[in-house]
Nucleic acid binder design. Structure first.
Lengths: 204, 204
DNA sequence: TTGAATGGTAAACGTTGTTCAATTATGCTT
DNA sequence: AAGCATAATTGAACAACGTTTACCATTCAA
């Protein structure tokens, strides 16, 4: 079944995703183009388009890789810290830190917009869900008494906020007057929000 | 000085910005192109490029318009509500609501990325600053005793978080299981964060 | 009524995503 | 071994993009 360079369909796809990843890491999302990827793996655009529906699917695969990396890091932190509150704080900081360490990849994940008719693949949505469910787990063990709805509300609120800090941190250095580092903001957010949320729960 | 259609330089610029705004409102940021804008105002691309450095400057002007609209709304809410805490809550909700009512424009503001060498114009940065300073004002009057650094930290933390909820609200309907509406998240964030923050201040 | 300056155009360049007819290489069958 | 069917691969083409520039035309100053 193999041809020319003895590359399986799967191998070509893997090579293309790798090439896309390095392109993103070096030049950012804007640096990715079908022709560049094709040239990097020693094929032409035509071949690329027999292995991927379009350029968005390719980028989505590269982004899914980054998301998996992030998930692995967060899961590790989760395992390493048994105490519920420090755990969430560390997870939030790791999230922020990941965005800083892999800035280009991070931006690629959240700035990449797919066309209106593009249906997000299951395997991609699964990563997003895994992320949110990790947070939900962490929040649940922080306040085991709360019912599912409350846990969901708190974890989504918290994580949207954490995400907001990460977003505004990147690119725009809104915090250029050095005192208010993103880490400080993160600390302020998580401790204040959660302390009030826990306190509210102990009243009931 | 006027030519062909008796349009001043300023008039052409205004027309182009208007055309860009309606394009964004109708088709989103991706629907904007130099040729489309030019055609809409009855000129050619060449003329457009004599009035704007590049397409980014044009989009920036359109986005600045939206930002001003937003600012006006927020300022109105600020004036209408004298009580410090309800004021912040209403401002946050208005922020969220604006994003929902003008989704395309909102996305255009925050998804538009300018090239690496592009220096953000002062008149644009001024809008961003005005936004943050409005929040800072509101937070300051919530806790007049705090020093400037603490106010800055809290207002930036709060607003990054508010922004995060708005961001995750748009496009991706992460909250499709209806119970956790963005309004609920917003309420949860602002009340919990601020109550803990105020409490912390009253201790000192 | 000239000459200079400016407004405006149209065509061109290089890039993008995407498609597709033509070609080439392979595996299977005879 | 020869030929055929099938699949992989190519390269050219298309439309649209941002941007530049040589050129034309209109106006103002002299």
């Amino acid at each position: 079944m193999a041809r020319r360079n003895d590359h399986t369909r799967e191998e070509i796809q893997g090579m293309a995703i790798d090439a896309t990843r390095t392109l993103i890491a070096k030049e950012g999302l804007e640096g990715v183009s079908a022709r560049k990827v094709a040239q990097k793996i020693g094929y032409t655009v035509g071949t690329l388009y027999q292995n991927f529906e379009n350029i968005h699917e390719l980028i989505l695969h590269a982004n899914a890789f980054s998301l998996t990396q992030l998930l692995v890091e967060l899961e590790k932190v989760y395992q390493a810290e048994p105490r519920a509150l420090p755990r969430i704080i560390r997870i939030a900081n790791t999230y922020l830190d990941f965005g800083q360490r892999h800035e280009k990849q991070w931006i690629a994940i959240f700035r990449h917009t797919l066309p209106r008719d593009f249906i997000m693949p299951d395997w991609y949505q699964a990563r997003i869900d895994a992320l949110f469910s990790l947070i939900e787990r962490a929040v649940r063990e922080l306040a085991p008494g709360r019912d599912k709805k409350q846990i969901q509300l708190a974890s989504r609120t918290l994580w949207s906020s954490v995400h907001g800090i990460c977003i505004l941190n990147i690119g725009n250095k809104l915090y250029s007057d050095n005192i208010a580092t993103p880490q400080t903001l993160m600390q302020s957010l998580v401790t204040h929000y959660l302390s009030a949320w826990i306190q509210e729960g102990s009243k009931a």
